[in-house]
């Protein structure tokens, strides 16, 4: 493409946007809204996922051994657990320590021991940490299968409920975003189609005097691209500033709500929004002009 031809395309595209300025604004606004919701949803999903992972990585497995297991065997089981894949840390909590902890919670050690007839009723137990939160269940099951292990506990329910929320959010997000995206796409298609329609005589003559398809297409392609770029640019800015605002508001409470504070993620999601919006615009315009080029 020659440079002066590119100039011609730019002028034509700008002119066309200006001719249908309200329609152009509506299309850009529609892209902006869809992309903003997409961005907000992405960040929400990322964060809930992050929180769930965070929670789960803090979750330990408590493996209670049988009460009558000798200390020697407890140590042996500890070694076995340590050898399991995915296990990062195993601490043996002897029954004496367990009793001590318990009586600290209740008050007096004597009373508790006396109440149980001088025999410590507690088993030894193992505190196990795993590397990958997702593998916690399989590790727990592996531990349970070791002879001498009575019972295995971990914060299964809370974590699983959170992951269920994440899964559900993802599907909901995909659905909502698909619908909004379709809405934005059809508005862009409509805008470009209007522009094409108002210039159909010109296009017709261009075809007859031998203009190439791309020569005819470029201005409309640019028009759609700009609509998408502009709309998603606004959306990306809104998402960026909005997220910063949320982080500031959460501020000191961040210990309890561990939001993602990674600037990279924010940057990539906003860039992704802009790229996605532009793609929608470009595709929309190519789609609308296809029919008119069939001469």
């Amino acid at each position: 493409m020659k440079l002066r031809t590119a100039g011609y395309f730019f002028r034509q595209a700008a002119l066309s946007l200006w001719r249908n300025v309200w329609m152009s604004l509506a299309a850009a606004a529609s892209v902006a809204i869809s992309m903003f919701l997409l961005g907000a949803f992405l960040l929400l999903v990322f964060n809930v996922n992050h929180i769930a992972n965070n929670l789960q990585s803090n979750v330990e497995i408590a493996a209670f051994l049988q009460v009558d297991v000798p200390r020697q065997v407890s140590l042996h089981i500890q070694d076995q657990v340590r050898a399991l894949p995915g296990v990062t840390e195993v601490t043996l909590v002897p029954k004496e320590e367990g009793l001590q902890q318990l009586s600290q919670q209740f008050g007096s050690e004597q009373d508790l021991l006396a109440a149980t007839g001088g025999v410590n009723p507690l088993p030894d137990y193992l505190r196990v940490r795993v590397a990958d939160p997702q593998s916690i269940q399989s590790v727990a099951e592996a531990i349970k299968a070791i002879p001498g292990v009575e019972k295995v506990n971990y914060g299964q329910e809370v974590v699983e409920r959170l992951f269920a929320v994440v899964r559900w959010l993802r599907w909901l997000g995909v659905g909502i975003i698909a619908m909004l995206g379709l809405g934005a796409l059809s508005l862009i298609v409509l805008t470009i189609r209007l522009a094409v329609y108002s210039r159909r005589r010109e296009i017709n003559i261009m075809k007859y005097v031998g203009a190439t398809d791309w020569f005819i297409r470029w201005p409309f392609f640019l028009e759609g691209l700009w609509l998408g770029l502009f709309g998603s640019g606004v959306a990306a800015l809104a998402v960026y500033l909005g997220y910063r605002l949320v982080l500031n508001m959460v501020g000191p409470a961040a210990v309890f709500v561990p939001l993602i504070r990674d600037q990279g993620l924010l940057l990539w999601s906003t860039l992704g929004l802009v790229a996605g919006g532009s793609l929608v615009g470009a595709l929309g315009s190519l789609f609308s002009i296809r029919r008119f080029l069939k001469v």
Partner: peptide, 17 residues
């Protein structure tokens, strides 16, 4: 398009812009 550049066409309804 290259073929069409070698054929000029005139219509009944002129088709001027």
């Amino acid at each position: 398009p290259l073929l069409r550049r070698n054929i000029g066409i005139v219509f009944q309804d002129f088709r001027l812009l």
